[in-house]
């Protein structure tokens, strides 16, 4: 019995953690309007989700989320990589100071980031919409990219860049042909991380999205829930997002496992 206890504990814990999402996935394969009613197996919610028309606002929210996520992840990948290279080349003392500054936004509560960005955009007079959401997402994603690229630089042979210069490469060519290929795995991990953070975000998005009717998934679902009752099509959508994030996570984990070898 004693031996079984830890296993039972773990099983209970996992059930607690995953039952909500499992319930949604299970009930995405039935037509009932109300969650909890099983009216037979069906793909109808999936097909109506992708037919558009009826749920135009949901699909447009999905597209907005993906586009914002991709742009924010791409830009923060570039910014974060450049920042990591810069930090790597600083003197030891300045370097640890800058690294600390990089880590603060990561630990900072979302709500603080959200309010400060909101106030910044208002005071700068930038119209809230696509631009502000993307800028905000870049802001909180970039430090994570720095964190995923920097270890690659640390493990890299310190003379690699110099060796390329020595062989006649211009600084830009050495960066492109030697440094970037070395950093690529870290940059890709950083991109994936930034993308998932972006599509996941609610608080910062809500404060920077404005009231011009722009919706991302998170704000759409929030508004939908407040109207009373969730659109049934959210169930298949949640299932799809969950599976996508799961796959992305597995990819990231496999990459880190490979790096350790």
């Amino acid at each position: 019995m004693r031996k079984q206890l830890p296993k039972i504990y773990i099983a209970l814990l996992l059930i607690m953690l995953y039952s909500p999402i499992l319930i949604i996935i299970v009930f995405s394969f039935t037509e009932a309007k109300v969650l909890g009613n099983w009216t037979g197996f069906s793909f109808k919610l999936y097909t109506s989700l992708f037919q558009g028309g009826v749920h135009h606002s949901l699909t447009s929210a999905l597209w907005n989320t993906l586009i914002i996520g991709l742009i924010a992840a791409f830009v923060s990948m570039i910014l974060g990589t450049v920042a990591a290279i810069g930090i790597y080349n600083l003197k030891t003392r300045t370097r640890s100071a800058v690294q600390l500054v990089n880590n603060i936004p990561i630990l900072n509560p979302d709500i603080i980031t959200a309010i400060s960005l909101f106030l910044l955009f208002v005071s700068l007079g930038i119209t809230q919409g696509y631009t502000t959401v993307i800028l905000a997402h870049i802001t909180f994603c970039t430090p994570y990219v720095v964190l995923s690229v920097y270890p690659r630089l640390q493990r890299m042979n310190e003379n690699l860049y110099e060796a390329a210069l020595d062989l006649g490469a211009t600084p830009f060519y050495a960066l492109r042909k030697i440094l970037l290929p070395e950093l690529k795995p870290g940059m890709i991990s950083g991109f994936i991380l930034a993308f998932t953070l972006s599509i996941d975000d609610f608080v910062v998005t809500l404060f920077t999205i404005g009231n011009e009717g722009l919706e991302t998934l998170s704000t759409y679902i929030y508004a939908d829930a407040r109207k009373g009752g969730l659109t049934p099509e959210l169930r298949p959508l949640s299932a799809i997002i969950f599976i996508t994030v799961l796959v992305l996570l597995l990819v990231i984990n496999q990459r880190t496992a490979k790096k350790r070898l």
């Binding site: 042979n157 310190e158 003379n159 690699l160 110099e162 060796a163 390329a164 020595d166 062989l167 030697i178």
Partner: peptide
């Protein structure tokens, strides 16, 4: 041209 201590091969 330089030969580095830790080789610095690409």
């Amino acid at each position: 041209n330089t030969v580095f201590q830790k080789y610095a091969l690409f």
